[in-house]
Amino acid sequence: MAKMSLRLIPSLKDIPKAQWDRLANPAGQPANPFLRWDFLYALEATQCVDGETGWQSLHLVAEDADGALVGAVPLYLKSHSLGEYVFDHGWAHAYEQAGGRYYPKLQAAVPFTPVPGARLLAQDDDTRTALARALCSVAHEVQASSVHVTFASGGDIKTLSDQGFAHRIDVQYHFQNPGYENYDNFLASLSSRKRKNLRKERARAQQGLEIVHLSGADLASEHWDAFFAFYQDTGQRKWGQPYLTRAFFDHIGQTMAEDILLIMARDNGQWIAGALNFIGGDALYGRYWGCTEQRPNLHFELCYHQAVEAAITRRLARVEAGAQGEHKIARGYVPVLTHSAHWFGDSGLHEAVAAYLDHERAQVEQNVITLDAFTPFRKSAPDLSLPSKGE
């Protein structure tokens, strides 16, 4: 392996955007918008991370002899376990009850974003292995108790497992598009009763409303003003305090407009609800929803049904609608496994968590088999080949 040096950087502004993006979204592979320099730097530039947020940027980078970036990990030193969607509060409580210090810890992730993707950003296996090993060294260096690599790709999980990380799995619900020509084609794949239920649900949700899809140059400040009010309402109810600032939405609206699909509902000229999606190379990613006026089934309409229609129209292979939610199954979303990897400096804690995760994985895998039986599809529905974006 060529000579390589590793270091920590406190901000992505210290790394050329083009070099980061070349590793995060290699040419010829479907793009993941959340790994883009623009998205991660937007979190830093608008104070969603760093400062008093409990997320301190501490990215790990690998450079060749000429100083060019050859590897990277989006990494954060954390003083809590909020905004991660892979829950370790029980581990933290047990360890501290036993006299240990769980925080700070290291989190290799996209903050506030439960979207699977690469975390060891590199173009060759040797560099990925070097990054995985370095994570443990960094934990010792910054006196972190542990390293948590969440929503990682399958390749990253293998590399991390080979370095002694414990493997955890969980379940999300994704819509899979096997090549539907239109939404009616999708409905035809459902059982008669489920198809009828979805039509009734959608008709009730849409009654009296105008639903608008906004992307690119169509996005304006009035839309972000309305959506931020929706987001604040959801954030205050779910988390007590929203994670993202108003400035963040302006920032991504300026730098990532073509990657955004904002689905909004309007009643008599007033915006009352919205769902924010990001457009990837082969997927539509549903991220945030909110409303200022409660309407029956409107959450399902904007977040799930409209997203399915948009994915089919854009010839995208799937919709990833965020964490949790067995209610998504009835709306055509199927259970999919997600993966994370965990390492602890205390060998006793590491062994205890690894043993627990062995048991948990078996339970989750059995749960997926059970959930799969409740999908709404006709048993004779055809298995069509997956399209690529733009085909």
Rank of each mutant, 00 (worst) to 15 (best):
G280A: 12
P242C: 05
H299L: 02
L244R: 01
L214R: 12
G281M: 09
E320T: 03
F227Q: 02
Q232C: 15
I211M: 06
F300A: 10
K238E: 12
D225N: 15
M256K: 02
A311Y: 01
L214G: 07
S215W: 00
S215Q: 14
P242H: 09
A283G: 11
Q270K: 13
D282K: 10
R295T: 00
M256R: 02
Q270P: 02
G332M: 11
I272T: 04
G235K: 03
W271A: 09
A275E: 01
E201H: 10
D250P: 00
F228W: 15
F248N: 02
G281Q: 08
T245Y: 03
F300C: 06
E210H: 11
A226R: 07
A217V: 11
E222D: 15
F228V: 06
T255W: 00
A205G: 12
R287F: 11
D225W: 03
G322R: 08
K328N: 06
I312S: 09
Y243W: 04
P242T: 08
F248D: 01
L214T: 06
V212A: 07
P296Y: 03
W224M: 01
F227C: 04
L198M: 15
N268I: 04
E201P: 05
F228L: 01
R199A: 13
S221H: 15
A247H: 04
G216N: 01
R237P: 10
G274K: 01
W289K: 01
Y304H: 08
D282N: 15
A217R: 14
K328C: 10
D267H: 13
R202D: 14
G240R: 04
Y304Q: 04
T255N: 03
C291D: 03
C303D: 05
L276C: 06
R246N: 04
Q207G: 05
Y243S: 02
E201A: 13
W271V: 04
H299N: 11
D250R: 13
T292G: 12
T292Q: 10
Y231I: 11
Y243L: 01
N277L: 07
L261S: 12
L302K: 03
A323C: 03
I272H: 06
V319Y: 05
A310N: 09
I260G: 00
Q324F: 05
K200M: 12
G280E: 10
P335W: 02
E222P: 10
L219W: 08
Q206A: 15
L219R: 03
W239S: 04
